[in-house]
Structure formats: structure tokens, C-alpha cells
């Protein structure tokens, strides 16, 4: 069963202009995106900056207002709920942010940071609270002494774990991870990724993994949606997307990933140049008259592509 169902989601940002600052047009940041998350899976949203992937994630967190479409979580449509009705749902959906340096309040102790969501939802004595926080710190592999420290006393990887511990305290069902490792060094990144996988097994978590690093996405995700200018241009299992990309944009994205095997570089360069040529010649045919990607069409059980 689908845990989350996003249907034809649109998020528009107004452009104001003219003498009376009236809304003259909209930036279509997310322009009709549909996908679903199954319980326990990791779904990846990839795309370049400005593709709308983070905006879509924020809309699910109801940090951005949807212009139209539905976001069904369980049987409730998040886009139609008011602030107070969303609150119980927020428990089940938590977010991990990209930058472990700016997403933690530098003036708060780790205890207060991690306990913050708890305090919003539950009445706990400070002893109980401390116990819960310590338990999660232990889970994320941090010393229990850490609770009295401040964020600047930790390294980037440790801070990212504090962010993860905070997201876990309410036992959410869905975690939206927006570029959770892109600010980290390779070896620290490996730690955090492994750790996210372990947590997923332990708590049966569902991840929506937003990122631009295709290596990381490939490693983490069972299914992937490729976004381009606010639209999904291709969706499929990891191997379908990486081994058999069908949309020109996906092909180009995959070809651009640096390969760790230096001996393939000539071949890859040739492929990239060939694709570049194809891109320049046939680019227009992948988009309709208004420059919008076509709707996704199913080409196999799991694989869909936006082709005319």
C-alpha cells in the first residue's frame, strides 16, 4: 500500500510587478508532479538546482503551499488541511536538512534541540525526556554526555546525526531527507548513509531522498524520479534509470556522473559528446510547444518516461 501519494502537485511562486505590485505571473516551481511512496522504501528525487525537487519536498512537509493537486498521506490530503489539523500529521513526517551547520540552533543545547519536537507533542517529565533523548543519541552513535553540549562543539557528521536524532524522536513513518550528505566529506558521508540504512531497517522507515549526487541516490534508493523544470521526466527502479535511461535529459544526467574508473574516460567523453549533439538536435522534441515536459507514460510495470 502506498504510504504517500502525490497527485498532480503544483507549487507556484508569484512574480509581482507593475506599479501596484500585482501578481503578474508565476514561477511554476513544481508543475504537475505525481508519485507514490511505498512503505519501507527509499524513493529518490533527483534533478539539478532549480528543478523543483526541494520545493516538492517542502510541500509535503507543508512548508510550501500547493497551488493545486493532492498529497495523500494515509487517507488525508495534506494540501487541504488547516494548520491545527496538520499538527498530528507532522509527527509522522519529519525532515532532515542539507546543512548541518545552519539547521541546528547554535544557542541551544543538544538536549533541547533533540527534545524540541517531543515537547511540542508530548507532556513528559524532564527525567523521562532526558532518557528518551539519551536513547536516541545512543542510536545515532553519540556519547550520552553530548546532551549538554552546543552544536558548534561537534563535527559536521556528528551534527548531521543530531539532526537525524531530532527527526527520529517522534517515531515518524516518513522522513524527507533533503540533500542530507552533500555538505559532508566522503568518509563522513559514508557513515551517515550507512546509518540511515540501518535506521530504516530498524524502524521500518520510508525515505524520500532528495539529491543531486547521482552516486548517492543510486546507492540509497530503490526507485527514482528524475525532475526537470518542475516536472518528472522519468521514473523507474534504480537500475532502470541508470542502465536504461529513456529520456534524453536522464541520459545526459547519467552520462555526466564522473566515473571512478579512469580507464573509461575516453569512452565516456565520446558518449557525452554524442549525447550533447543529440541533445542539441532533438531537445525540442522532448518538450511540448510551451517547453513543458510531456506527461509520464508507462513503458513497463515500473518504468515511466515523459515522451510525446
Amino acid at each position: 500500500m502506498a504510504l504517500l501519494n502525490v497527485n498532480d502537485l503544483k507549487v507556484y511562486f508569484p512574480i509581482v510587478g507593475g506599479f501596484f505590485r500585482r501578481v503578474t505571473d508565476y514561477v511554476r516551481a513544481v508543475d504537475g508532479v505525481s508519485f507514490e511512496l511505498h512503505e519501507g522504501e527509499t524513493y529518490g528525487l533527483v534533478g539539478e538546482s532549480g528543478s523543483g525537487k526541494s520545493t516538492a519536498g517542502k510541500a509535503i512537509m507543508s512548508l510550501n503551499k500547493a497551488a493545486s493537486g493532492e498529497i495523500l498521506f494515509g487517507n488525508k490530503d495534506i494540501t487541504k488541511l488547516s494548520g491545527s489539523q496538520i499538527k498530528p500529521l507532522r509527527r509522522d513526517i519529519q525532515m532532515i536538512f542539507q546543512d548541518p551547520y545552519s539547521s541546528l540552533n547554535p544557542k541551544k543545547r543538544v538536549l533541547d534541540i533533540i527534545a524540541e519536537p517531543l515537547r511540542n507533542y508530548e507532556r513528559m517529565s524532564s527525567v523521562e525526556e532526558k532518557k528518551v533523548v539519551q536513547n536516541y543519541l545512543d542510536k545515532v552513535g553519540l556519547d550520552s554526555e553530548a546532551i549538554h553540549k552546543y552544536p558548534h562543539e561537534f563535527s559536521g557528521g556528528q551534527r548531521q546525526r543530531i539532526g537525524i536524532a531530532r527527526a527520529l524522536t517522534l517515531k515518524p513513518k516518513l522522513i524527507i531527507a533533503d540533500e542530507p550528505v552533500s555538505a559532508l566529506d566522503v568518509s563522513v558521508q559514508a557513515q551517515v548513509l550507512n546509518f540511515l540504512q540501518e535506521l530504516q531497517e530498524e524502524y521500518k522507515l520510508t525515505y524520500l531522498f532528495i539529491g543531486h549526487d547521482l552516486g548517492v541516490i543510486r546507492h540509497m534508493c530503490s526507485r527514482i524520479g528524475v525532475m526537470y523544470r518542475g516536472r518528472l521526466v522519468e521514473e523507474g527502479t534504480s537500475s532502470e534509470i541508470y542502465e536504461n535511461p529513456r529520456h534524453l535529459y536522464t541520459k545526459r544526467l547519467i552520462a555526466a556522473i564522473p566515473d571512478i574508473r579512469p580507464e573509461t574516460r575516453r569512452e565516456k567523453e565520446r558518449l557525452r559528446n554524442a549525447l550533447k549533439e543529440e541533445y542539441e538536435q532533438t531537445f525540442a522534441s522532448y518538450f511540448d510547444d510551451t517547453g513543458r515536459a510531456y506527461d509520464l507514460k508507462r513503458i513497463s510495470e515500473t518504468h515511466s518516461v515523459a515522451l510525446p
Partner: peptide, 11 residues
């Protein structure tokens, strides 16, 4: 420790 197309989803 680099995740890449070749690693699959092992730790």
C-alpha cells in the same frame, strides 16, 4: 566509501 553506480546498495 564512495557510493557509486557500481556499489549496489551494500553498506
Amino acid at each position: 566509501s564512495i557510493p557509486s553506480a557500481a556499489t549496489g546498495q551494500d553498506r
